[in-house]
Design a protein around this nucleic acid. Structure first.
Lengths: 146, 146
DNA sequence: ATTTTAGATGAAAAAGATTCTCATTATCAT
DNA sequence: ATGATAATGAGAATCTTTTTCATCTAAAAT
């Protein structure tokens, strides 16, 4: 099956846990999932895969560039399939929803800043935190009830 | 003494642990310190202040806007005195050095992006990771030896 | 100056996320 | 099929941070 191929192409043995984790990442409607999320889905699906393995697999996937890891405030990280398109995140502090965005101007200025500071840029992370539209209207609802 | 005043002005009782933590933040040459760093300095200074208290105090300081907390990759956070000037961080993945920068263009685009996505912006964090000039030349040194 | 009282502290336990250990098992090349 | 190599599961370990709770202290009241 296709996932096995993809794993081997990435230089990883096509083991059951890896295939299953990859399936979860591909099939879930959530684009951003924590290790625990993946683990729970596998549990509910009746798979017998340990949490430690999920962590290991996700870390390997990251190394193999299959997924990208993002670290958010509060020591909470999520993984997402790497579709080649770099992007940053904007997330809701109420409901945890994660949206993506790209801004070429920001990207360029970051490179300039790194160069000016004498750094060889290896990575960057830009996260914007806020209250999403849904949670704003939910808050209004609550207001009107009180 | 001045620190007591500052604490009361911030709405916090001027207790010994708070004063000591504030002193450490003011006197250390490192501008960015983790809770553990502060704790160790206090230990070495012979102060009898628990790690839990350091965490509590730093969290309170953050709430009182005396310090700002930044979360870096790998679940590692640092605190720094809040001098009113917002800035982002660029840090060296080799030596851990942290530099600061501000870019008005980036700041503005972030606000625009949040607005366009329908979010009420509450916070943002931009961290650039790279290899600093010092570590680059250190790497060259190592090269020439081999 | 002494008492009062709300709030703060220290020590240890708990929690949460992630990594490590190691005996067992599965994968892939042969 | 089979063996060498690498991966897995379960639980222990680690690391950072938070919580609990009995004790203590800063600041207000007397």
């Amino acid at each position: 099956m296709a996932d096995s191929q993809e794993l081997r192409k990435a230089g990883l043995k096509a083991t059951l846990p890896r295939i299953k984790v990859l399936e979860v990442l591909e099939r879930s409607k959530l684009h951003h999932m924590g290790a625990e999320d993946v683990y729970k889905i596998l549990l509910n699906a009746g798979e017998d895969i340990g949490l430690a393995t999920v962590y290991r697999v996700l870390t390997q996937f990251e190394g193999a560039r299959l997924v990208t890891r993002s670290n958010f405030e509060g020591g909470h990280s999520v993984y997402e399939l790497n579709h080649g398109n770099h992007h940053d995140h904007i997330l809701c502090v109420k409901c945890g929803k994660v949206d993506e965005f790209v801004d070429d101007v920001i990207e360029k200025r970051q490179r300039d800043i790194a160069a000016k500071a004498g750094y060889i840029l290896t990575d960057h992370s830009l996260n914007i935190y806020g209250v999403c539209a849904d949670c704003q209207s939910a808050a209004e609802q609550a207001q009107s009830i009180l």
